[in-house]
Design a protein around this nucleic acid. Structure first.
Lengths: 255, 255
DNA sequence: AAGCCTGTTCCCGCTACTCGAACGCAGCGC
DNA sequence: GCGCTGCGTTCGAGTAGCGGGAACAGGCTT
């Protein structure tokens, strides 16, 4: 599929999104700053920004432009298109109420984990996770749970493409070690994250699978390491998660 | 500022977003269908879709493309950039718990109301409102609350640009009638919506204003018409809303 | 097997995108 | 007061690259 070498992207579209990315990163900026940043002529940047603004994608604040909430509309649409999200949402809420911890539902897209829905428990920790954020799958419990239940070639593809970047000193950065863990996850059915993405934070993740066994997403519970330990971490939470994941799978199959 | 006539948009970017819009509307589609729809050559559509897909903005499902959750990342970023949203969020949650009804926080952008954050009460009604959705300001309580506290010229601009489309038989479609209502809203400080956006649904909306008096957003409570009536509608809910709006304004000024 | 539907590739022509220079305006320092 | 320097904006020109059309490859149906 798709011989990469022959395909030439639409460069004008690429610069448009380079601008959008730059605006996101800089939290808004003006014409000159963006032109410098991207090595484009001011007039070019100007024309692009105006085009995007007239479409409603950007808003002006004085001489600066920033992203508009149009993107939210596209994004929410994209999220809700995946049936599993609608099914998972109430279960995530339930789990958060039961465990009092932060609960996430995560999808895989383009080989990265996307946090698409989260619910706060009474004692939720604040992590860097946020709706829409993309995280390399090997760095967290839900991600590893997904990886463990993807086709082997797909896993290889993903690891080749995105590598094994470290996040904390505990993050798995060795490929063989990761593959071993994935094997263990496959056997017991759920994944742990012991300070691999945030220092002081533990998590458990369980995959949500479809009929053929491949993961369409995962749910996870995360909390402070000193609270999530012992049997709570190794037995109780996995039980709750597997139950919830299973319910989601059933509801998904009958929807 | 901005002589519209001289400015020529980047057409390639426009077609790219025409494709994105079409994909949103159709919930995903293939090359040929999109080419037919937009009157473009298949090869053109193909090249655009590939470009967007390689950027991670689209995902392929077989031969169909659909929007990816990348947009969610942009959108959440855009929303969280507005400081008022972070401040309003906990108040919206509180109000939902207190009233047991659906509570929304709405921003104005490009002359339209954007529902950026909503909280469910125990007895929430399901309306067509959804995070990210844009609605003409004259059609609902929060929107009217915002309109009432914008500069007069700005209001005229918005009405000229977006018109007064009807939504239910109760929607205000007469400009003078709307301006009169806005005057009344300015005097009492909050707005009502009696089946003007959804049949059988009433709502109350209160503006969140900054120091100079202009609205930066609004909160609203919506529920079934037969529950939201009498003193609850005309006194109790307005009181609660004004209190919450005021707290948001104070927190916003000190953040 | 032939037809028809996809998505995909290739190449050519002309559009329109990019650039650079010039302009108007503000704010600042001398 | 004046000029400098920053900004966003406009204009014109030259050519890169976008868009179109035709041809190809593969699946499915008839």
């Amino acid at each position: 599929m798709a011989n990469e070498s022959t395909h030439r992207p639409v460069e004008t579209v690429e610069t448009a999104f380079d601008l959008v990315d730059a605006l996101k990163e800089r939290d808004g900026a003006g014409v000159s700053a963006l032109a410098d940043d991207l090595g484009l002529a001011k007039s070019t940047v100007h024309r692009h920004l105006r085009t995007l603004e007239e479409r409603g994608l950007l808003v002006r604040e004085g001489d600066d432009y920033r992203l508009s909430t149009w993107f939210l509309d596209y994004g929410v649409h994209a999220r809700n298109r995946r049936p599993v999200v609608e099914v998972a949402r109430p279960k995530v809420d339930e789990l958060a109420a039961e465990t009092n911890e932060k609960v996430w539902f995560v999808l895989e897209e383009h080989g990265l984990g996307v946090h698409v829905y989260g619910a706060e428990g009474k004692h939720s920790v604040k992590t860097h996770a946020r709706i829409g954020r993309r995280t390399p799958l090997h760095q967290f419990a839900a991600g590893k749970a997904i990886l463990a239940f993807l086709r082997e070639e797909r896993v290889a593809e993903i690891l080749d493409e995105h590598g094994l970047a470290g996040q904390t000193h505990r993050t798995i950065t060795d490929r063989d070690e990761l593959l071993e863990q994935l094997e263990a996850i496959r056997e017991r059915g759920y994944a742990f994250n012991r300070e691999e993405s945030v220092a002081g934070v533990h998590a458990v993740g369980a995959p949500v699978r479809e009929e053929d066994g491949t993961a369409v997403g995962a749910i996870s519970v995360a909390g402070p390491a000193n609270r999530l330990r012992g049997e709570l971490l190794t037995d109780e939470l996995p039980d709750l998660l597997l139950g919830a994941a299973n319910e989601i799978e059933i509801n998904l199959a009958h929807s």
